[in-house]
Design a binder for these strands. Structure first.
Lengths: 124, 124
DNA sequence: CCTTCACTTAACCTAGCGGTTAAGTGAAGG
DNA sequence: CCTTCACTTAACCGCTAGGTTAAGTGAAGG
């Protein structure tokens, strides 16, 4: 899963299209494993393990009612993921491109550091 | 990487904290492999491969200038990732919770489907 | 009860990740 | 030239992911 931190777990969970499909489904309504398996063309054990991954990332909760186990979307962790990505919005949002260019210019401004062949970016 | 689609590649790339750190660094300024390696306490080959992953996800571009290879953040793919997550904002954004509850009620409304022990969620 | 249903767990597979060290490449420079 | 610098590629490692089939679990029900 790469890191063991929350954010890594969430991004890792989202990296699988099957799990994204499960999330999309659970956004509509809670569902049992059988219901989730039906449209997925993989075995129920496979789905069961995807659910475990989503649960470890705290993206779903599960409840038992008789022989059925329903999965319920818990989207709170998505907020952290969204927040992380949002920090870079200025890099793709065209309405902020001008500002970004300005800020980049600000960063590059100042004493105009010496740039040599050995130090092409003036970091020395 | 789970899927080979663009979105999976991006989320997969973001799932590693080292790669997120690299992105954070490149958001400040373009950087060479050596510069990126310095604060990371892993070997340069390891960083080199992280960069390849980021490049496959189209999150960075690379240019050559003499013996230096600079990496440059290309955040466009982050937009897709952000857009995907945004679809679920109503599940965590409290200002939308009331609306969400309303929509859920709408979905559940109607002929009030029969619910039996065999069909606890009235899907039959 | 014994079976069926709805799962979960186990065992196994192949493929890929992330790290290492060591060897290869290609431009710069004394 | 030959070396050094800044990487990249190769070979190898242990670990995890995602799939399978088969066996286990536990509540419902004739």
């Amino acid at each position: 899963m790469a890191g063991t931190d929350q954010l890594s777990a969430v991004f890792s969970a989202l990296a699988d299209p099957t799990r994204r499909a499960i999330i999309a489904e659970l956004a509509e309504r809670d569902a049992t494993v059988t219901e989730l398996t039906a449209p997925l063309s993989i075995s129920m054990p496979a789905v069961s393990r995807h659910l475990k991954v989503l649960q470890r990332a705290a993206l779903i909760s599960r409840s038992r009612s008789g022989k059925w186990r329903a999965s319920h979307l818990e989207a709170a962790p998505l907020r952290e993921a969204a927040d992380w990505i949002e920090r870079y919005r200025r890099f793709w949002d065209s309405s902020l491109t001008r500002l970004d260019a300005h800020l980049a210019a600000m960063r590059t401004a100042g004493p105009a550091p010496d740039r040599t062949v050995d130090d092409p970016r003036g970091l020395a």
